[in-house]
Design a protein around this nucleic acid. Structure first.
Lengths: 225, 225
DNA sequence: CTTCAACAAGGAGAATTTTCATGGGCTGGG
DNA sequence: CCCAGCCCATGAAAATTCTCCTTGTTGAAG
């Protein structure tokens, strides 16, 4: 789950970023409008935490740009108590929720969870693909009824594939999904092989073969047969 | 057990808060409508003690907001003798009980206990999970028939896990549940390890192994096998 | 058909992150 | 005042994630 935090105040940004990572999200931060805009255009996030008052522009413009691009990203607005107009405008523009400063961490987490749950597989309780059964709520994966334990990256990788059934995913896309902006164009993406290998192995051990097909020179995809 | 006390009169608020803490609850207080509303939206309480006459609004509106949100929280209304209409309205709106000022502390405690008993695990007299038997009324935990003594935090932690069987609970969710609004962003949640360790140890001593599974990098959950 | 270059797979182990255990200080109730 | 229980810091242990290197495979050009 990738989250972008847009907040200009350094202390708060750091604290929130730490909290989000602690809660298990792949969190990144932008300090101003320019940074945020770049990241929004560059990557796809599951949820954006948006402070409306930025030193070099309004968060509302960011929101507008995002929604104009037809992005499915969830947006949680973070605003000062006195900026009620902004709040209303934000909701009109397609934000999912808002939160008034100062707020409590657990409250933030609860709202983020709610937004992500709403989006993730349309809130399905379970995802079925051939012999696979995934229960997102319990973070459990079953193969032919047997529970298997995956590491976090393996789990994320599997869900990414399941979220795009049949579509070809390039190494780069996978790496970016798993690691966020920590990856660079110059980086090697070999570590994807490792996770892919481990995931395949764990699936094959339970007799689920050939779920992940290699498209030579392109990427990988889930195959239906 | 988390309780929110909504009461504007400072002296009474302090006294009741102390009494509730004394009785072993995790009690927090709100002095007015605004505070109470924020906290209600923020956290999930097991029970709310609600004074209907607040300086900046009616407790009835709070109750309405709460029930509109589908909250399962129990509500005990605290009201002056002359506000009979309010009392009736409150019960119509889904309050569980009412108490007329002035009242005895023991009376309050009895009512709170009754409400919580009714709500907790749907009023079950006992909770069974594998070899575990918990009697919420007596705050007793038995493992394979043997009584074990837990500290308050250990007990709360166990009940929190039992209330969310199979679901993954992050460290900060646990911390917030155990400590209420006393936790903050910069805090470390390492102390959870200590309670977890102590609880596990006490369970294992009686032969109940592997009940609490560690989800590396995510959190903890009760495991069914 | 052969050869080459790019790509993919696999194994081993280093690096990093997360969790656990121990001990000490602090606090609040008795 | 004492003590159980809670919180926190430190360092050890464990699990995961990533890197490196070798080997095998594929597709296309000659």
């Amino acid at each position: 789950m990738k989250i972008l935090l847009v907040e200009d105040e350094a202390a708060l940004r750091t604290a929130l970023l730490a909290s989000l990572k602690q809660a298990g999200y792949l969190a990144e931060a932008a300090a101003d409008y320019a940074q945020a805009h770049e990241k929004i255009m560059l990557y796809q996030y599951d949820c954006i935490l948006l402070d409306l008052t930025l030193p070099d522009g309004s968060g509302l413009d960011l929101l507008r740009a995002l929604k104009a691009g037809g992005s499915p990203t969830g947006v949680l607005i973070i605003t000062a108590r006195d900026a009620l107009d902004d709040k209303i405008a934000g909701l009109d523009l397609g934000a999912d929720d808002y939160l008034i400063k100062p707020f409590h961490l657990s409250e933030l987490n609860a709202r983020v969870r709610a937004i992500i749950r709403r989006r993730q597989f349309n809130g399905q309780q379970q995802i079925v693909f051939r012999d696979l059964l995934v229960l997102p709520e319990l973070a459990e994966v079953h193969v032919r009824g047997e529970l298997i334990t995956l590491t976090r990256k393996e789990y994320d990788l599997l869900l990414y594939l399941l979220a795009n059934p049949g579509r070809v995913l390039t190494k780069e896309a996978i790496a970016e999904h798993l690691c966020g902006d920590a990856v660079d164009a110059a980086d090697s993406f070999d570590f994807i092989y490792t996770h892919l290998k481990n995931l395949r192995k764990k699936l094959q051990e339970k007799g689920a073969d050939n779920y992940i097909r290699t498209m030579y020179g392109v990427g990988y995809k889930l195959s239906h047969e």
